[in-house]
């Protein structure tokens, strides 16, 4: 959809895919550059076990920035995560200034140092399956995240992760 000559849906897709590349590359600051000051992030999952819609992690842009800043202080599984993301739907608001998008993702973990590296390193394992449910604002032809819900199907998370997904 073009608003005043701008392809808003295209800008939204572009931002989501750029985010995927930055997250894959662990370029956290570049990822945050795509996020507005108002940005809110949450990882959620529904548990049939306890019949509860859970929030596994959440934070404002500032809180995510702090979390990222302190990563080097923590012991972490450094096995790279690689996403396959597909934007399914982009619904642009009538004024063309915001949009909601739903994307599907799978995240593979390419084993490095989390388990028995001599045996496992180099192997890719399916890690997470879910959807990104994003709200973005669009101005000057660029889309920025104001909200990202990472909706996981997984409740078996094994070692989990320190990283934004």
């Amino acid at each position: 959809m073009a608003t005043n000559g701008v392809d808003v849906a295209g800008a939204v897709r572009d931002t989501i895919y750029r985010a995927a590349i930055h997250l894959d590359a662990q370029k956290w600051d570049d990822w945050l550059e795509l996020c507005d000051e108002k940005f809110h992030y949450a990882i959620k999952a529904f548990s049939p076990e306890i019949n509860y819609d859970m929030i596994y992690l959440q934070g404002t842009r500032k809180e995510m920035q702090t979390l990222i800043k302190l990563l080097p202080k923590h012991n972490t599984d450094h096995s790279p995560l690689t996403r396959h993301t597909t934007v399914y739907t982009v619904d642009v608001a009538p004024d063309g200034k915001s949009a909601k998008a739903v994307s599907s993702f799978v995240i593979y973990q390419n084993m490095l140092d989390g388990t028995n590296s001599h045996i496992d390193a180099g192997e890719s394992r399916l890690f997470l399956v879910g959807k990104y449910i994003d709200t973005l604002e669009v101005s000057d032809g660029k889309a920025r995240f104001v909200d990202r819900e990472v909706r996981l199907e997984n409740r078996r998370l094994d070692k989990g992760s320190h990283w934004p997904l």
């Binding site: 990882i43 012991n75 972490t76 998370l157 989990g160 992760s161």
Partner: peptide, 12 residues
């Protein structure tokens, strides 16, 4: 949590 600061370290 599974994406919290301590549990990941304990499990590693």
């Amino acid at each position: 949590g599974p994406f919290g600061r301590n549990l990941h370290e304990d499990l590693i």
